[in-house]
Design a protein around this nucleic acid. Structure first.
Length: 434
RNA sequence: GUGGAUAUAGCUUAGUUGGUUAAAGCGCCAGUUUGUGGCACUGGAGAUCGUCGGUUCGAAUCCGAUUAUCCACCCCA
């Protein structure tokens, strides 16, 4: 296969055998968001590079080394979105959605782009479902948005996800904690790994997340954020937990959860799966009370999460979760000759107008080949049209499962007679199942 | 950006110490005498053996480079 006909590294086609599952999952997400009062927002795939630098943070890996950035023909620096929050906040401000009332609750289903090395659960183009809520700093909002994500996993039949939550405090208490942590780590500076040494200045909290055993050894007894939260933050975190308890949503506090995007404050959470490889986070999110103001809006508390579609699909595959199959073709119309093909086309159109799934021959194939095709697509009924049938304006409707046939007229009553046949066949099928 | 493994038809794989025309199963298309699917049988299409270069009389096979995939670091959903 010539290289130019291969999809670019890190991208995947979603083929018919999978796209039905994607659609079903997306439908559940849309519905779950809708019943929580969230409305869809669609924003551009690309934005001005500056937007991501100023929101996601220009010291984060995502912005620093993973963005697809280019100059357009007008010499503007443009980037493909690496995540969804920045665009949502930009649209919120630009269209003054907060003036329409509070809270604003938005969701999106988007593709995102990050220039990374690929591995299981990590691609360069990937898809996210995300929710964002603006205008409330109350802990019940944190619990609601976690409940929304939790509800989606439940409806999809996913088991064994662990919800881990933490509070990384507000800028005030966090900077105090940073100082304490930094002094603690300075003592065993020599033993830290190379990358953690660099983190010491910029973002010491990330060191807690390091998987290098030696760093883990050092941070084992490190001071934890929880003990340094200011009164308001501590109270908030405690209240979030009470609401989760009230909603019967199991969780555990993991003081090592540190999110990699700069805008997070207070509550952060992840849904983690043991059925994935190293990329085990299926859903991540948290509060970002400072972002809207930082982007030029009024001080507006906000929070959100995103879940990775591809990772979700991997978990579901690992757990062998069966989704409902698409509706089968109700009728395949086989035809012999041009006149019969024309009639078959007209009859299938009649069914399509009644929203019934039906197909007729579009390849001029032999009757046998047509029947084989009908069998392959799992057609419920078949109808063979030839000169005889056209003359008599009648045909034999064949129920494929048993091979039984029944007469049907090809005139105006065709639709009603066919509907009756379906009803009868369905009641038979139900009867044979029990 | 770093490390390890892999690369033969649409898919799953075989291919001997380098030796003629690269093999099989599944899938696809068609046929097995009149206008009816599943089963069986027969046939057909489909591979410049990831790509480029080297060694050799001769390379799918040996060597080098490159690309892609998978896994892991890192990062994150």
């Amino acid at each position: 296969m010539a290289a130019w006909i291969q999809a670019p590294k890190g991208t995947k086609d979603i083929l018919p055998k999978d796209s039905e599952n994607w659609r079903l999952i997306e439908d559940i997400m849309r519905d779950e968001a809708a019943i929580h009062g969230f409305q869809e927002i669609r924003t551009p795939v690309f934005e001005r590079t500056e937007l991501f630098e100023r929101s996601v943070g220009d010291t984060t890996d995502v912005v620093q080394k993973e963005m697809y950035t280019f100059l357009d023909k007008g010499n503007r620096s443009i980037s493909l979105r690496p995540e969804g929050t920045a665009g949502a906040v930009r649209a919120l401000l630009e269209n003054a959605l907060l003036n329409e009332g509070i809270p604003q609750k938005l969701y999106y289903l988007i593709s995102c782009y990050r220039y990374e090395n690929t591995q299981e659960g990590r691609q360069r183009e990937f898809h996210q479902f995300g929710c964002e809520a603006f205008g409330t700093e109350k802990p019940i909002a944190d619990a609601e948005i976690i409940a929304l994500a939790h509800g989606i996993f439940e409806r999809l039949g996913i088991r064994g996800l662990s919800l881990e939550i933490n509070s990384i405090g507000c800028p005030q208490c966090r900077s105090k904690y940073h100082e304490t942590l930094r002094t603690f780590l300075e003592e065993s500076k020599e033993a830290l790994c190379h990358t953690c040494l660099e983190r010491l200045d910029k973002n010491p909290m990330r060191i807690l997340d390091c998987k290098t055993p030696s760093c883990g050894e050092i941070t084992k007894d490190a001071p934890i954020m929880k003990d340094y939260l200011c009164n308001d933050c501590a109270e908030h975190f405690f209240a979030v937990q009470s609401y989760l308890d009230a909603a019967d949503i199991p969780y555990k506090v993991n003081t090592r959860i540190v999110r990699g995007l700069d805008y997070y404050t207070r509550t952060v959470f992840e849904f983690i799966s043991g059925d994935l490889g190293a990329q085990s986070t299926v859903c991540g999110g948290g509060r970002y009370d400072g972002l809207v103001k930082q982007m030029g809006g009024a001080q507006t508390p906000a929070l959100g999460f995103a879940m990775g579609m591809e990772r979700l699909l991997l978990v579901m595959k690992a757990q062998q979760i069966q989704l409902p199959q698409p509706a089968v073709c109700r009728l395949y119309i086989a035809s012999l000759g041009k006149a019969a093909q024309m009639k078959g086309f007209a009859l299938s159109n009649m069914l399509h107008h009644a929203a019934i799934k039906a197909e007729c021959d579009i390849c001029d194939r032999s009757l046998k080949a047509q029947m084989k095709y009908a069998d392959k697509i799992g057609a419920m009924f078949t109808l063979v049209l030839g000169d005889n049938e056209l003359q008599q304006n009648k045909a034999e409707l064949k129920y494929m499962r048993t091979g039984e046939t029944m007469p049907i007229t090809l005139g105006n009553d065709f639709l009603t007679e066919f509907l009756a046949a379906i009803t009868q066949a369905e009641s038979l099928a139900l009867g044979s199942q029990s």
